[in-house]
Design a protein around this nucleic acid. Structure first.
Ligand code: ZN
Ligand code: ZN
Ligand code: ZN
Ligand code: ZN
Lengths: 160, 160
DNA sequence: AGCACTACTGTTATAATATTGCGAAAGGTA
DNA sequence: TACCTTTCGCAATATTATAACAGTAGTGCT
């Protein structure tokens, strides 16, 4: 996330917390900033390491902050990576989908109504009440595909 | 999984392994049986506890067997639960969706083409090559909804 | 059968992720 | 101020997963 988006995310979080009557403490702000500043999803212990620069911190510190940020919808958890990522549109609640590149590690958050809709429909057909849909697609992003395919089109050398 | 489905699953696994030229060892068979016999997804250490009844076993034992069964498509891993479940149609490779009841813990495996298709389309639009889609929906199954709603329709007692 | 080769297994240790419990501090309310 | 609730610091521990290495068993070849 670039500097501008980051500042925007922090400001948005601050406003939303005020509206919701919850506290946007320095600790929580700091963790949100660290998550958003990263290019890729970050693990809880990576955040912890960064929190420890200058201060003292233990796992509960970061997990509590993350729990709060998750509840407020400011960050998402990627279950397949055990890692966290800043939300790109925290203003409104949403069920999003994540495209995770196994090559470069970058993640794109989608908010695709067709996917969400077909999932709702399928769930309803079985009488299931969907509350928290998790959609994470591992694969290769456009950028990394180009890299790889160009490499692949160079004269093939037989193995050995 | 009932006894008949279980026997069927084991037989199918055996045949597929023979076709594929891989070994369906006693260890792997045992783990598949334990996973399939369960009503709900089972964690690796639950399996381990059961393996330990009578024999000696350590984490790598169960994780290695599970890795094999996952590769062969005989079981699935539920990332949100850190648990494993027997596949209901291991004959053909597939990307399925899981409806996970937070109440009773039971899981239904869907193979819904509309969902898979809309996901493929959305991914392609961004140039992303989808390789492993993970779709897990937490919610409440039809059975548990009925239970809860009936309870809800009984005369409401104000809280405190 | 004997032998080499590979795949599988046992064992120990350790890494990585996450939670519990408790008491102190800070922030809001009257 | 006193009172109550939420957050935080801290230590311990639980849960999930992997690494490294040595031994065993199956497989194919002669
Ligand atoms: Zn989001
Ligand atoms: Zn990439
Ligand atoms: Zn399946
Ligand atoms: Zn249920």
């Amino acid at each position: 996330m670039d500097e501008e988006s980051l500042q925007n995310a922090l400001k948005t979080a601050e406003i939303l917390c005020a509206q919701r009557g919850v506290r946007f403490t320095a600790q929580r702000r700091r963790v949100l900033e660290l998550v958003c500043r990263a290019e890729r999803p970050v693990g809880a212990y990576e955040i912890l390491d960064q929190l420890r620069e200058g201060a003292t911190a233990a796992p509960p510190t970061v997990y509590r902050a993350l729990d709060f940020l998750l509840e407020q919808g400011f960050v998402h958890k990627l279950e397949t990576l055990h890692a966290f990522i800043g939300c790109t549109h925290p203003e409104h609640p949403h069920a999003s989908q994540f495209l995770i590149c196994s090559d470069c590690g970058r993640v794109k958050e989608l908010e695709n109504e067709a996917i969400a809709g077909s999932l709702r429909t399928a769930a309803q057909e079985t009488g299931f009440k969907a509350e928290r849909p998790i959609i994470e697609v591992l694969g290769t992003c456009a950028h990394c595909r180009r890299k790889t395919e160009q490499a692949g089109t160079s004269p093939r050398v037989p193995l050995e």
